[in-house]
Amino acid sequence: MTSIDVQDLTKEFGGRRAVDRLTFSVRPGRVTGFLGPNGAGKSTTMRLVLGLDRPTAGSATIGGRPYPELREPLRHVGALLDAQAAHGSRTARDHLRVLAASNRIPDRRADEVLEETGLSSVARRRVRTYSLGMRQRLGIAAALLGDPEVIMLDEPSNGLDPEGIVWIRTLLRRLAGEGRTVLVSSHLMNETASFADHLVVLGRGRLLADTPMRDFIHARVQPRVRIRTTDPVALTSALARHGHDAEEHADGHWTVDGARVDDIGRIASAAGLPVLELAAEEGTLEQAYFDLTDSETEFTAQSQEA
């Protein structure tokens, strides 16, 4: 199977480390979200994987081989780095035909990916007339051109309209479902949460996390239970008897930290409480991410003071 393997990858730009001894793997059959603030080294890592930048140290391979050694690489790896890369004076179709020709991909594929990305009707228009969202779709079309097993997209939802965002989510899920290796960078948490199975998180060029998304959230954000009742006094005393602390909120609902909905439901039922609402509140990726980066910022702030 084709994985992306990054080993001790380091890249310095004039003494500044953009990527710092990074080691991780991106496995097939799932969508890996590549997270981190701007300047964390996500795009640099992608360029290093594609052999566009030379690493200062370490290596990046695709299916065990360095990218520049791939024969007809577009048939193995499709990447979207910069939606502005297409020349404004070319038509979208010509732009794709140029790329296809270099890797002996038939022109038919250009029409197929234009269809797939919803650009068929504007395929013969010059790229300069395209909106940002349309360029983004063209960039994705270029990545899909060679029907590759590995797909790397840098901020693909940039400039997409709400419909486009739903489209890309479905597309990413489908590509992973077909067994492909999918790496998608983003700084939008809710967006990433909607399509990623696995996360690789960077901060200042270093690896902060490489875990399944569920585990990442559960390890950092305590789940809680949301409950609403007509009798708050009876509720709090019933909860207190079972060792739970309830917190009241402005609109009259209560939350119980670190509890499971199964337990709270039983307690309420045993106490004969009329329950108007009972729900498990899962932690969000955003909460988990900020928990991670906050501790990271604290750490770096302290080490700078020291």
Binding site: R47, L50, G51, L52, Y67, P68, L70, P73, L74, V77, A79, L81, D82, Q84, A85, A86, H87, L99, S102, N103, A142
Partner: peptide, 18 residues
């Protein structure tokens, strides 16, 4: 020089890494 416009060169060299 049309290759040195935006990310055009990266796209070209990703297609032809040699």
């Amino acid at each position: 020089s049309s290759e040195f416009h935006q990310g055009a060169l990266r796209l070209s060299l990703a297609a032809v890494p040699r």
